[in-house]
Amino acid sequence: MNIQFSQESMSEINRVIGHFPPIRKKSALLPVLHIVQKESGWLSPEVMDKVAEILEIKPIEVYEVATFYSMYHTKPVGKYVIEVCQTGPCMICGADKTIAYIETKLGIKVGETTADGLFTLKTVECLGACGYAPMFQIGEQYYENLTEEKIDDIIRHLSSNANNI
């Protein structure tokens, strides 16, 4: 299967490659993986092979990086990945309750995706929002000082967004 990335992604990829000397193309690997994951939803072997081709490196150099960093999805995920911070300061401010509430609300456990493919629930380690706990991240957005009402609103909003597409 020959993967082609969108023009928008390709121009973004070329921009970050331009941050480095021509012989150091590999340095652009992390940002390039972010760009293609945004477009593809997750990093399939085909997507990673294409990245290797673009950066002129071996596929294994992409795989080993994709499996090391926690933000890369090497398996398909839902449209919205809810990443709840569960580390110390968030925990003592109610992260456990937040996680349990979302599990009940969406009817899934941590690590699972809703049947409609909309939401994946994931726990993550410290996101640097300790003073605004409990919190989660969805895409590039931080949601902080969460309450059950706020969570309801966020999920309702995202669900209706998705249904309107």
Partner: peptide, 27 residues
């Protein structure tokens, strides 16, 4: 001056891991 994103790895705050990561490798 350029900004470069990591991808979720506490260890990349260690300076030599950060350098490895900036070179496009595991931290």
């Amino acid at each position: 001056l350029y900004v470069h994103p990591g991808a979720g790895a506490y260890i990349c705050g260690e300076e030599t891991a950060l350098i490895e990561s900036l070179e496009g490798k595991r931290g």
